[in-house]
C-alpha cells in the first residue's frame, strides 16, 4: 500500500491533526513531512494507525496514543507519548524532557538519549532508551518500567512510588528513597524479552534495578530532610 503524505509546514495544527485522523480512519499508512519541530503532532491517534514523521517533532507528539504505531525519524520535544495507553512510539534521535509522562501502557523506544524526568509519573508501560536517561528519570513513577542501556543522569529514580528503573552503565547519582537491587535471572529474562524484538539483547550487561525504598510512602516528620529534593 502506498504512503499517504501529509505536509505540515506553517498550517494550523488542528487542520493537520484532522487530516492525520481522517487518513488513519481510512487505514492509510501516513508519512508526515516538513514537520519543522511543530508541537502536538499526532495526538490521540487510534489503534492500528501507522505513522512516520520525517525529521524532528516538537512537544507532545503521539500523546494520548491508544494503539498507533508511530515512528519519529529524528528528535522529539517535551513529553513525547504523554498519557499514552497502548501502541508503540520509536524516536530515532534525542527525546526531550518528560518522555512518556504519565503514560499508562504501550512502549516508547528512544534510540538516542532521553532528557530529564523521563517517565515522570508513569503508571504503566515501558520506556526503552538506548542511550542515557536524563536527570531525575522515573520521578514519582507509579508503575511501569524504564530501561536505559547507556547509563543515567543525576538523581536517578527519584521519589519512585512503584515501578522500576533498569540501568546498564553508569548512574551519576541516585535520587531520594531508592533501593538498588541485583535483578534475578528470571527478571533479566523478562527484560530481555522486551529488548529482543527491538534487536537490543546483550547478555553481557551489568544491570542495576532501582525500586522505591518506600520511605516516602508515609510522611515521617523525623525524616523530613528526605523530602527536600534538592
Amino acid at each position: 500500500m502506498s504512503e499517504y503524505i501529509i505536509d505540515v509546514g506553517k498550517r494550523h495544527i488542528k487542520e493537520i491533526n484532522e487530516e492525520i485522523q481522517e487518513a488513519a480512519k481510512q487505514g492509510k499508512e501516513i508519512h508526515v513531512v516538513n514537520t519543522l519541530s511543530r508541537h502536538n503532532l499526532g495526538v490521540g491517534l487510534p489503534a492500528g494507525a501507522k505513522l512516520t514523521f520525517e525529521g524532528s517533532v516538537g512537544y507532545y507528539c503521539g500523546g494520548l496514543n491508544v494503539g498507533a504505531n508511530i515512528e519519529i525519524e529524528r528528535n522529539a520535544g517535551w513529553a513525547c507519548g504523554e498519557g499514552m495507553s497502548k501502541g508503540h512510539i520509536t524516536i530515532g534521535g534525542y527525546c526531550g524532557m518528560s518522555c512518556g509522562a504519565a503514560m499508562m501502557g504501550g512502549t516508547i523506544h528512544v534510540k538516542g538519549d532521553a532528557g530529564p524526568r523521563c517517565g515522570v509519573a508513569m503508571k504503566g508501560g515501558t520506556i526503552v532508551v538506548e542511550g542515557k536517561i536524563g536527570y531525575q528519570s522515573g520521578f514519582m513513577a507509579h508503575s511501569g518500567r524504564i530501561i536505559a542501556l547507556g547509563g543515567a543522569g543525576a538523581s536517578c529514580a527519584d521519589a519512585l512510588w512503584e515501578g522500576e528503573v533498569w540501568v546498564a552503565g553508569e548512574v551519576e547519582s541516585l535520587g531520594v528513597d531508592v533501593n538498588v537491587l541485583e535483578p534475578t535471572s528470571e527478571e533479566v529474562a523478562e527484560v530481555d524479552a522486551i529488548l529482543d524484538p527491538l534487536g537490543l539483547t546483550d547478555s553481557s550487561r551489568n544491570w542495576r534495578k532501582m525500586v522505591s525504598g518506600q520511605r516516602l510512602w508515609y510522611f515521617e516528620s523525623r525524616e523530613a530532610s528526605a523530602w527536600l529534593m534538592i
Binding site: 530529564p116 536524563g134 536527570y135 531525575q136
Partner: peptide
C-alpha cells in the same frame, strides 16, 4: 534554520 541540523538541548540541571 529551517532545515534539519544539529540541535543542542540544554536540558540538564
Amino acid at each position: 534554520f529551517e532545515d534539519e541540523g544539529e540541535v543542542t538541548n540544554y536540558d540538564g540541571p
